[in-house]
Amino acid sequence: MEIAVEAAGVSKSYSGKEVLYGVSMTVGRGEAVGVVGPNGCGKTTLLRILAGLEKPDSGEVRVLGRVGMVFQEDLLLPWKSLADNIGLGLTFRRAPSEEVRRIVHALAEDLGISQYLGLYPHQVSGGTARKAALARALATDPDVLLLDEPYAGLDADSRASLNLSLSSLARGGTTMLLVSHQLDELLWLVDRMYVLTPPPARVRAEVRLRGMDWDERKRAILEVI
């Protein structure tokens, strides 16, 4: 399998406090990989480094192609409608407005939020806002999708609905790296999972889950947590 994302010995510290220490991992093309670990163990920092938003102190990062990212907070612009938020990246890339409209509507349709496209972020539920943030990341057709705590702050229904959308993406071959501490949702979704230690974070275990049913996945992860 071609490697789409690779982190090799990545370390990062802030004000002398080590957050990541020699983290190494890979994500194959078309693979959905999860990263779990205790709160504050540097999962978000790792994702920001992979997205190119921060530089590691040491180690190497390689990402093939364009990155899309869903941030922990939805970061929908309050002054734009959901449709304009979803099409933001395309607007930045000077895509023709007809193309932007077509892509935005197609994504909204896939994610079941087309009826909200004309509304503003403060007018929609947390689940819809999160899906809009996901649609915005997908609109630019990224080669790798990074998701930071995609289930955070959502109720059970919204989590389930979002998970269905993400599963559909995973089945469609979207390369995804998700960090979360919602183990159940991730377990259901990913092909492989990395478990990080408390800070300074290192990879404690790598669990292969592809082809396993729910009980086998649960057993496999419980063995290392």
Binding site: R48, A51, G52, L53, V67, G68, M69, F71, E73, L75, L77, K80, L88, G89, T91, F92, R93, R136, T140
Partner: peptide, 19 residues
């Protein structure tokens, strides 16, 4: 965080300023 978002989405300086 908004500036990070703009960067990820490929905004130029003028886009950052305007949007």
């Amino acid at each position: 965080r908004l500036m990070d978002l703009a960067r990820i989405l490929g905004a130029g300086r003028l886009d950052e300023f305007r949007h």
